[in-house]
Simulated assay, not measured.
Amino acid sequence: MPLTNHHSEEEVNQLFSRVAGKYDLMNNVISLGTQRAWRKALFNQLQVGPGADCLDLCCGTGDLTIALAEQVGRTGRVIGLDFNQEMLKLAEKKARARELQKDIELVQADAMHLPFKDNSFDVVTIGFGLRNVPDANQVLREVQRVLRPGGVFGCLEMSQPTNPIVRLGWKGYFTLFPVFAKVFGGNYQDYRYLKKTSQAFVSATELKHMMEEAKLTAVTVTKLNLGAGAVHTGYKA
């Protein structure tokens, strides 16, 4: 059964337009200040080399996209894709600040219907985005389609701790999470939505099965922060 987000695409698009300016800060809060370490764990798994053709889905403000561009160098190709224009504006600003604007192509499009041919990329990534799409299974099928044989997919996402004590603490933390919206000048309901999608997303084991159902192979799982997050990697045969 498909994992679906019951908010419409337009509702989610409007939400991310509202939170774009504070999105990096709130991602830091939601990951307990460890999102940079989490991204490092993702890249340790991927081992992206110079010259690779890369696609970063739901790229948001561009942190993963920029990291990919720095790894593949001038001989590689990096595309950052997001459906939200405000997020892409921030990604472009970051790329210019790092003098990488010529090395990164930013595309506004739907991750469930990628505007690319089959077998186009060596690497596809998604960070903190799979939980917010209307149909995560459809995104995974699209990932498998656009990857080249032997290509790798890397997903960095929130997860569900399996240890009962850790899980209890995680739920308690997320009870307080929307209150941070007031501290940072945001909308309580917007951050309540982000809390909900983070808490409701599937476990690491379930996501592994979803990737395998999408015909990705050799899927690995690396749990982060006692299971609060996870890195998943998988390959196209």
Rank of each mutant, 00 (worst) to 15 (best):
L3Q: 13
H7W: 15
S8H: 10
E9P: 07
E10C: 09
V12T: 08
Q14S: 12
L15A: 05
F16C: 06
F16E: 05
S17V: 10
A20W: 01
D24E: 01
M26Y: 01
M26N: 06
N28K: 12
T34Q: 14
T34E: 10
R36M: 06
A37E: 13
R39Y: 01
L42N: 09
L42Q: 11
F43L: 04
F43Q: 10
Q45E: 14
L46G: 00
D53I: 12
C54L: 05
L55Y: 00
C59H: 07
T65Y: 01
L68A: 02
E70M: 08
Q71H: 04
G80W: 04
F83Y: 11
N84F: 04
Q85V: 14
M87H: 06
L88Y: 03
A91L: 04
K93Y: 10
K94M: 07
A97R: 15
E99H: 15
L100G: 02
L100V: 09
K102L: 08
L106D: 03
L114G: 00
K117W: 07
K117M: 13
T125N: 04
I126H: 04
G127R: 03
G127M: 07
G129I: 14
G129K: 06
R131A: 13
N132Q: 11
V133N: 07
Q138L: 05
V139R: 06
V139C: 10
R141H: 11
R145T: 00
R145P: 00
R145Y: 00
L147D: 07
R148W: 05
V152P: 02
F153S: 01
F153Q: 02
G154Q: 02
L156N: 09
M158L: 15
Q160A: 08
T162F: 09
P164F: 04
V166M: 08
W170I: 09
W170M: 09
K171Y: 14
T175D: 11
V183E: 02
Q189S: 11
Q189T: 13
Y191F: 12
R192H: 13
S198H: 12
S198Q: 09
F201R: 03
V202M: 12
S203F: 10
M210S: 09
T222P: 00
L224P: 00
N225E: 10
G227E: 03
A230R: 10
H232I: 07
K236G: 05
